[in-house]
């Protein structure tokens, strides 16, 4: 069982990285989710995961049991990972509303723009018009 978990984790991690290298921000954020689940699985596999054996048995029961600690770690990681993923999604949604499109190159272009003048420490720049398509070279930043 262990090898199956390990291989699955590896394949999923590869998928996650591949998605993160995509041009579309949606895939990047989803890639984070896939990658984080791959790593959860990896942590489980690294901590002697024996497939279907339970982590807790009643006293005296003569059953095989696995180390519960990796399961506790992964449980923590899932909860935290979920919160971070939801936050990333909400930023993604807002970015999409402001830009109207979702490509990593646009993000780079916007960040590299010169700082806007005359704003009180740069509060709420949301009212600006979208940057006028400086035709970013597609796929250059892969």
């Amino acid at each position: 069982m262990e090898w199956l978990t390990a291989v699955t984790a590896g394949v999923m991690a590869g998928l996650g990285i591949w998605m993160m290298l995509d041009q579309h921000l949606i895939r990047v954020v989803l890639g984070i989710a896939v990658f984080s689940n791959a790593i959860n699985l990896g942590v489980l596999a690294a901590g002697r995961h024996a497939g279907d054996a339970p982590a807790f048995v009643t006293q005296g029961a003569n059953a095989a049991l696995v180390n519960p600690l990796p399961q506790a770690l992964v449980l923590t990681a899932i909860v935290i990972g979920f919160a971070l993923f939801v936050f990333a999604l909400s930023i993604l949604k807002r970015t999409y509303e402001l830009h109207g499109k979702n490509e990593t190159d646009d993000v780079t272009v916007v960040v590299e723009q010169p700082a806007p003048d005359g704003q009180e420490n740069g509060f709420e720049e949301g009212g600006e018009s979208a940057p006028g398509e400086p035709d970013p070279p597609a796929g250059e930043r892969e």
Partner: peptide, 27 residues
Amino acid sequence: LGGGQRRLAGAMTYIVLNLLATLLFLL
């Protein structure tokens, strides 16, 4: 905090790369 195109774009970069680092740490 505060939103706006430029800031959210920067935040996106920050979030993705820092999440990646933290996930590597977890692994």
